[in-house]
Design a protein around this nucleic acid. Structure first.
Length: 474
DNA sequence: TATTGAATTATGCAC
DNA sequence: GTGCATCCATTCAATA
C-alpha cells in the first residue's frame, strides 16, 4: 500500500485499525471457536429476525468504529493534503481503511461506490426487495415524502392503536438511530439505520411465501445518523453516517453511491418534500450544509450552533423556515432567505437547560416540538414561535439507549415519544396530558419513531436491540 | 476554555 | 432464570 500517498489523518486511522485488529485477533480466536461450535443451535427469539446465515459464514473481522474528527477539533495543524485525501475517498481503492468483510469473506471497500450486492449482509435474497421497491416506485411516481394532509384533522382514535404480534421484527443487530417509512400507500416498508452502519429494510406487507421480509445492507462503517427518501422517487434513498459519508442507495442502479465525503461526522440529514435538488445536513460541531446534488458541491455552509446538531426539520407551511436542535441546549428556527454567514441570527430560539435532541414542526407548521434531556418536551407556537411551554417528561435514557425524540402524528393534536417503562407516550397538545400505550409484545424501550406519511395510525418505534414495533390503527 | 475522567445501566446472548 | 459483555453516548464535574 502506498502509505506515502496518505494524509497524516489516514495514516493515524490505519495505525489505529491495525492496533485494534491485533487486539481483536487475540480476543476473537477463542470467541470464534465458541461461535462456530454454537452457531448451529440458535433460535431462542420467537420474533422474526434477519437470517444471519451470511453473518455466520463470514469471518468476523470487525472494523473499529472510526468517527471522523477534523484536524482542528483534534488540535492538529492543518494538513495541506487533506483536500487531495478527500478526493481520494471518492475513488475505489481496495484494501484501504474502511474495509470490512463481505458475505463472501472478501474485504469490502467502503471508501467508494458499493454495489448493493456487495453491501448486502443479512436477510433473504434481496432480489424480491429491489423489485418490490421498483414496483412501488412505478405505481406511485408522484408521491412526495410529506406528511398526511398537512394540518387537517386525521381522525385518529388513540384507542384504536394496537401492536399486533406479527408487527414486531428484529430488523438489524445494532442500536437503531433512525427509522423511516417508504412513502407509499401501496405497501408498508420500514427502513432503519443502526449504530453498526447497517441499513435494514422490513417489507411488512409481503405476501405469503415471500419469507420474513427482512433485508440488511452494510453500506457504512459507523452509526447511521440519517435516512431520507428522495421526494418523488422511492428508489433513491439517502443515508448519512458518523463516518463522514453521505450515500445514495439507488435501487434501479443497484448501487450505494458516495454523494459526499467529509472530514467530520454527519449527525443529521434532511430534504425538502417539495424539492429534490438539494440535501441538508449537519456535521461536526454546529456545521450546516446545503448540498447541491446536480453540481456535487455545497451551495451554502453555515456554522449555526456551538455543538452538534441533532435534527433538521422544515416547516411544511413555509419551507423557508428550518428548525435545528443541538447539544448546545438550544433549538433554533432559521429563515433560509436571510441566514448570514458570519453571525447567523435565528428567527426564534428555544432554550433548554440541557441538550436538545429534536425539534420538529407540526403537520400544519403552527407548532414546534422539542425534546431535551432536561426532562421536558417544549411546545412553541404563535408569532415567530415565541410562545413556549414546557411539558414535563422523563427523558433520561441510559448509556445503551438512544435519546428520545418526540415526533408528530398525522395532525397537530398528538406528539409521540418513548418511555423508559417500555411504552409509547402520547402527549395531547390540546390539554397537555400524557397517556402511555403499552403492549406485552413491546419487550424493549422504543426510542426513535416514524409516523407513516400516508397511512394514519401506522407508527413505527425502534429500539436499541434492533427491533421495530409497528403500531397500527384498526 | 479545553481536556479528562467518572458515572450512568438496557439489552442480547450464552448457558 | 442468571450472569456477562457491550464500550467510542452523553453529561457533568474536576482539573490544567
Amino acid at each position: 500500500m502506498p502509505t506515502q500517498a496518505l494524509t497524516q489523518y489516514e495514516r493515524e486511522r490505519l495505525e489505529n485499525i491495525r492496533r485494534n485488529g491485533e487486539m481483536m485477533a487475540a480476543l476473537k480466536l477463542q470467541h470464534k471457536a465458541n461461535e462456530l461450535s454454537t452457531a448451529a443451535k440458535r433460535p431462542r427469539q420467537e420474533i422474526k429476525s434477519f437470517n444471519n446465515d451470511l453473518e455466520k459464514k463470514k469471518p468476523k473481522i470487525e472494523a473499529p468504529i472510526v468517527i471522523r474528527r477534523s484536524l482542528r477539533s483534534r488540535g492538529l495543524p492543518p494538513d495541506s493534503s487533506t483536500a487531495a485525501g478527500l478526493e481520494d475517498d471518492l475513488l475505489p481503492s481496495p484494501g484501504r481503511f474502511n474495509s470490512q468483510s463481505s458475505p463472501q469473506g472478501f474485504p469490502v471497500d467502503r471508501s467508494g461506490p458499493l454495489a448493493v450486492k456487495e453491501a448486502h449482509s443479512g436477510g433473504a435474497d434481496d432480489r424480491l426487495l429491489l423489485d418490490t421497491i421498483l414496483c412501488m416506485s412505478e405505481n406511485a411516481p408522484l408521491c412526495p415524502a410529506k406528511k398526511f394532509k398537512e394540518g387537517t384533522a386525521s381522525g385518529l382514535n388513540l384507542e384504536s392503536l394496537t401492536l399486533k404480534e406479527e408487527n414486531v421484527a428484529r430488523v438489524v443487530r445494532g442500536r437503531i438511530l433512525n427509522v423511516r417509512f417508504l412513502p407509499s400507500g401501496d405497501r408498508t416498508v420500514v427502513i432503519v439505520g443502526d449504530k453498526l452502519g447497517n441499513v435494514g429494510f422490513w417489507d411488512v406487507d409481503r405476501k405469503e411465501g415471500e419469507g420474513d421480509g427482512i433485508y440488511v445492507y452494510s453500506p457504512h462503517s459507523a452509526p447511521v445518523s440519517g435516512i431520507s427518501v428522495q421526494p418523488y422517487s422511492l428508489c433513491k434513498i439517502f443515508t448519512s453516517c458518523y463516518d463522514g459519508f453521505l450515500r445514495l442507495m439507488d435501487v434501479g442502479e443497484e448501487k450505494f453511491n458516495v454523494v459526499y465525503s467529509g472530514d467530520e461526522a454527519i449527525f443529521s440529514l434532511s430534504q425538502l418534500s417539495s424539492e429534490s435538488g438539494s440535501l441538508y445536513f449537519c456535521e461536526g460541531r454546529g456545521g450546516f450544509k446545503i448540498w447541491d446534488l446536480k453540481t456535487g458541491k455545497a451551495s451554502s455552509s453555515f456554522s449555526l450552533h456551538t455543538d452538534r446538531i441533532n435534527s433538521i426539520d422544515f416547516n411544511p407551511a413555509n419551507t423557508n423556515l428550518v428548525a435545528t436542535s443541538s447539544t448546545d441546549g438550544t433549538a433554533c428556527i432559521w429563515d433560509l432567505r436571510s441566514i448570514r454567514k458570519g453571525a447567523p441570527k435565528s428567527v426564534s430560539t428555544i432554550t433548554h437547560k440541557k441538550a436538545v435532541h429534536s425539534a420538529y414542526f407540526s403537520p400544519s407548521g403552527n407548532y414546534l416540538a422539542t425534546t431535551s434531556v432536561d426532562n421536558t418536551v417544549g411546545l412553541a407556537s404563535g408569532a415567530n414561535f415565541a410562545d413556549t411551554t414546557m411539558i414535563s417528561h422523563y427523558n433520561q435514557t441510559s448509556r445503551w439507549i438512544s435519546s428520545f425524540r418526540a415526533i408528530w402524528g398525522w395532525d397537530d393534536s398528538y406528539i409521540f415519544l418513548g418511555n423508559m417503562k417500555r411504552a409509547v407516550d402520547v402527549i395531547s397538545t390540546i390539554d397537555r396530558t400524557t397517556i402511555s400505550l403499552v403492549s406485552s409484545h413491546m419487550t424493549a424501550i422504543p426510542t426513535r419513531f416514524a409516523a407513516h406519511p400516508l397511512t394514519v395510525g401506522a407508527l413505527a418505534g425502534a429500539t436499541a436491540g434492533g427491533q421495530v414495533y409497528l403500531w397500527t390503527s384498526v
